[in-house]
């Protein structure tokens, strides 16, 4: 198919006038500008993480330093000369909170999403659309509304104050929907004949699920777990309302940004970017291999 497309393109090329070439040039310039728009702010942020200047900046360059990553402590007195990441206890504590929440979210959202997907793909009635709408509604709901409803609900009904637990529940509500969509996409490609055959050959229902359905879904479970974990870690808008007096890494970054900018946030940003780049490269490579 791509062959025919290529030959078709080759055939049509001579007929394009110079005006089309111009539009191509314009398009390329536009694409360049767009990607500059996406990346220049990030590059500025990376640059400022290595500047001695305690106000994040790249224009006012005062020298190269790694202090914002490592911190600087006077060996003899133990006095902190420059406050870097290791001296920021709240960030580390927040990271820990984030990880706890994200693990809980994965543990809740995967079973819920899987159940929802199984029910939806097997349901043959007029209520499927309604059920589907209901189950993906958390994705379409603004994050702050999810945070607010979860917070009020758990306090009104169970007298549970806002905190790590309510945040976990609020995240699970919509991350389960994403998991469900992933499972549905996978289940639609399932050959149901296999299950039928196993049943005909005398396998028990539980065995069919454990030996046929689960292995078929395993890659999706892994992907859904990773994506769900990351989504929970990254979330700000829902967390901000549901976290109460506690904090996560991201809300802590947020509250530090309110009280003035510090290059420590740039340092965290650089770490995030490195992780993101590595993950993105891995994902693109993985996707290419899966396709090819």
């Amino acid at each position: 198919m791509s062959m025919t497309a290529n030959t078709a393109m080759a055939a049509s090329t001579p007929r394009r006038g110079s005006s089309i070439a111009w539009s191509d040039v314009l398009l390329n310039i536009y694409i360049l500008i767009f990607f500059l728009y996406l990346f220049v702010p990030l590059l500025i942020m990376i640059g400022a993480a290595f500047n001695v200047n305690s106000t994040p900046s790249i224009t006012d360059w005062q020298g190269f330093t790694l202090d914002w990553f490592t911190g600087e402590v006077d060996e003899e007195t133990g006095r902190v000369i420059a406050k870097g990441l290791p001296q920021e206890d709240r960030f580390l504590q927040g990271l820990w909170h984030s990880v706890i929440i994200a693990l809980g979210v994965v543990a809740i959202a995967i079973p819920l999403g899987l159940s929802g997907a199984l029910v939806l793909t097997r349901l043959q009635s007029g209520s499927t659309t309604f059920l589907y709408t209901l189950l993906i509604s958390p994705i379409l709901t603004p994050g702050i509304v999810l945070g607010v409803t979860t917070m009020i609900f758990w306090r009104d009904i169970f007298s549970v104050e806002a905190g790590l637990f309510t945040t976990m529940i609020a995240h699970s509500t919509f991350i389960a929907s994403y998991c469900m969509l992933m499972f549905m996409a996978r289940l639609q490609r399932q050959d149901r004949g296999l299950e039928e055959a196993a049943l005909d050959l005398g396998a028990s229902n539980v065995m069919v699920f454990r030996r046929i359905t689960l292995p078929f879904l395993r890659p999706t479970i892994l992907t859904a777990a990773v994506i769900g974990f990351l989504q929970s870690m990254e979330n700000y808008n829902t967390t901000f309302f549901a976290i109460g007096g506690s904090w996560t890494l991201v809300t802590e970054i947020g509250s530090r940004m309110r009280f003035g900018l510090t290059p420590v946030i740039n340092a965290i940003g650089v770490i995030f970017i490195v992780i993101t780049v590595v993950a993105a490269v891995a994902w693109v490579f993985f996707r290419k291999r899966e396709k090819g």
Binding site: F35, P41, I44, M45, I58, Y236, G269, F272, A280
Partner: peptide, 29 residues
């Protein structure tokens, strides 16, 4: 291209905001 859009997309939104506050700050870029 995919890398070019995935990296900024996957990066935490607060950091994207932070990059812009650096640009727009009074003493900013």
């Amino acid at each position: 291209f995919m890398l070019g859009i995935i990296i900024p997309y996957a990066l935490n939104e607060l950091l994207r905001i932070f990059a812009w506050t650096m640009i727009l700050a009074n003493e900013g870029i």
